[in-house]
């Protein structure tokens, strides 16, 4: 396992070097805090924010993409080539979310080439969190502010320098490529990292997560969904800011015989999400839609993939215009589960 340190004054140089033959995505300042952006100028990169307002899933799973184009009765494939990409500074929750998305887009042996072309070319350097944000709860959902899942390299901010730990072959190759700028991590560095990790984990709040799937199933008809449904505005915010939400729609856009088939993000909170062509809608109320969002993550995904599809990044909480808090909902569901 390659363990290196990089003087913080050399971060820009490091990114410039690695960005020479890659697309570089990293957090930059934004009016909403920070956001992931494709950066040409590494001096814009800002590592002081915690998680960005929008998740980096866009890098591998863009909000919309053309699947193919067509003209009258003739279809044209789109080129599936993707460029080498470096996703730098994603937080461990976001990196872990990429691991979850990987499971969806390769589910039951069916590979999604549109997703995988980008994902396979993306090297993820995750940045461990020293201080969690106001709505973070990664440790409650099996993650960690210093977690390694989904990342190729894990970085720690040690004040004067970044400590970099290669986690995969790709990560190791990346670090080797920049070896002129880094130094071998010392025992002292490694100890500092261990200490920072322990400190960070301690600061996180523990949220009760309903794990009894049978009890969760029982909650389908529970009263709590009614009130939550009245509050929920039915927007796409929570799903669109969420690093693990992956539902999409496929639409044909045509104009005078020429067209394209587009896939775009969708959200189970939208009333149109389940509207059938016949006009029938199996989820008639917002209560049913909000319930779907929560149960998909905490019941159906555990059933299908063996783990909940929430990494505790807190974005749906900070951004919900109706002030809904997933943590509070999970707490209530846990106590329901105890009663029944």
């Amino acid at each position: 396992m390659l363990e290196m340190t990089l003087d913080k004054s050399k971060v820009q140089e490091f990114l410039r070097l690695l960005g020479e033959n890659r697309r570089l995505f990293a957090p930059v300042k934004d009016r909403m805090g920070t956001k992931f952006s494709e950066v040409a100028d590494p001096s814009l990169v800002c590592l002081d924010g915690l998680n960005t307002n929008l998740s980096p899933k866009e890098v591998v799973f863009p909000q919309w993409e053309t699947l193919y184009t067509f003209k009258e009765d003739h279809a044209n494939e789109v080129k599936l080539a993707a460029q080498e990409t470096l996703l730098f500074g994603a937080r461990p929750c976001d990196a872990r979310a990429l691991g979850l998305l990987d499971q969806v887009f390769t589910w039951e042996g069916i590979d999604d080439p549109y997703y995988l072309r980008r994902r396979e070319k993306t090297c993820v350097v995750a940045l461990a969190c020293n201080t969690p944000g106001e709505a973070c709860f990664c440790t409650s959902v099996g993650g960690s502010p210093v977690g390694e899942i989904g990342a190729d390299v894990l970085a720690f901010d040690l004040g004067e320098q970044l400590y970099l730990r290669a986690l995969t072959e790709r990560g190791e190759a990346l670090l080797k490529e920049a070896s002129t700028l880094t130094e071998k991590a010392t025992e002292e560095d490694k100890q500092a990292v261990q200490q920072a990790a322990a400190e960070a984990e301690k600061q996180l709040q523990a949220i009760p997560i309903p794990k009894d799937l049978a009890a969760l199933k029982e909650s389908f008809d529970a009263e709590i969904w009614e009130e939550l449904g009245l509050k929920c505005l039915g927007c796409g915010t929570c799903a669109y800011v969420c690093p693990t939400c992956h539902c999409f729609d496929i639409t044909d856009e045509t104009k005078k015989g020429v067209g394209r088939r587009v896939r775009n993000w969708d959200s189970c909170a939208f009333s149109l999400f389940t509207l059938h062509g016949s006009g029938h809608n199996p989820r008639t109320t917002q209560a049913a839609r909000y319930r779907q969002r929560v149960l998909h993550k905490f019941l159906y995904c555990p059933e299908n993939f063996g783990e909940a599809f929430c990494v505790g990044c807190g974005r749906c909480i900070t951004n919900c215009p109706a002030g809904l808090d997933l943590r509070a909902v999970l707490e209530r569901l846990s106590s329901l589960a105890k009663v029944t």
């Binding site: 106001e134 009245l230 002030g323 808090d325």
Partner: peptide, 12 residues
């Protein structure tokens, strides 16, 4: 009151 500071939530 919502759980985050400076946030409220509609209630019924």
């Amino acid at each position: 009151a919502a759980s985050l500071p400076l946030k409220t939530s509609p209630c019924f």
